[in-house]
């Protein structure tokens, strides 16, 4: 039963990934991407990693993919013209991909099989008594605190970087500056002139 679902999810995952690349309409590509995320989630669930599955769903489908969709829809980019050159190198790319695939398959076949060889350490981290989330939390904030903090720093850099690269002062944009508005006084702004009667054109 489990293996049937595994092959189902895996199969759909691979094919939807292929369609992400080959789909003509970029919106379709994003949809296939979402489909592949869902299938990956299914694989996680099969492994008993519910928390990761949910995380993938929420973060990638809920946030990232939707953002992609927005961007693609809002930007007016002619994807047709971008794709013109792609078939030129496709053959070479295909050959390389096939060679790589063949080699990896051969390599895996050359492995010494056995439960203790692949994933040699105990897989029993996933227990049924303590739920997934707590389990992750337990190691994340103790054993891997150093990495966790580093990951936080990476996110901070990403934010700073995004701001640096996109934020720029435009000269021709009118902007409201509340502080400035409040702080200005009469002498700066009002100019009282004595105008003779009849001459104030």
């Amino acid at each position: 039963m489990v293996s049937i679902f595994f092959y189902l999810f895996a199969f759909i995952l691979i094919f939807s990934s292929v369609f992400v690349i080959t789909a003509k309409n970029p919106v379709h590509s994003v949809f296939f991407l979402i489909l592949s995320f869902f299938n990956a989630t299914g694989l996680f669930v099969l492994m008993g990693a519910e928390f990761l599955a949910m995380l993938l769903l929420i973060v990638y489908v809920g946030a990232v993919a939707v953002l992609f969709l927005f961007v693609i829809m809002m930007l007016n980019i002619d994807f047709k013209s971008l794709r013109t050159g792609i078939m030129k190198n496709a053959r070479l790319g295909l050959i390389i991909g096939v060679v790589l695939l063949a080699e990896i398959i051969f390599s895996i076949m050359g492995m010494h099989y056995g439960k203790d060889k692949i994933l040699g350490t105990n897989l029993s981290v996933v227990s049924n008594e303590i739920e997934n989330t707590r389990l992750l939390g337990n190691v994340l904030y103790t054993d891997y605190i150093y990495l966790f903090q580093t990951a936080g720093l990476i996110l901070l850099v990403a934010m700073v970087g995004a701001i640096v690269l996109t934020h720029r002062k435009r000269d021709n944009v009118r902007k409201q500056d509340a502080t400035k508005q409040v702080l200005r006084n009469k002498s700066e702004t009002l100019n009282i002139n004595d105008i003779e009667i009849g001459k104030g054109a």
Binding site: L147, T150, I154
Partner: peptide, 23 residues
């Protein structure tokens, strides 16, 4: 390797931004 990867990403991400800094 995980520490290495974390350090590498932190380093690289900053460098990507720095390389593109001259807007």
């Amino acid at each position: 390797f995980i520490t290495l990867y974390m350090g590498l990403e932190l380093q690289s991400l900053s460098l990507y931004v720095l390389a593109a800094m001259k807007k």
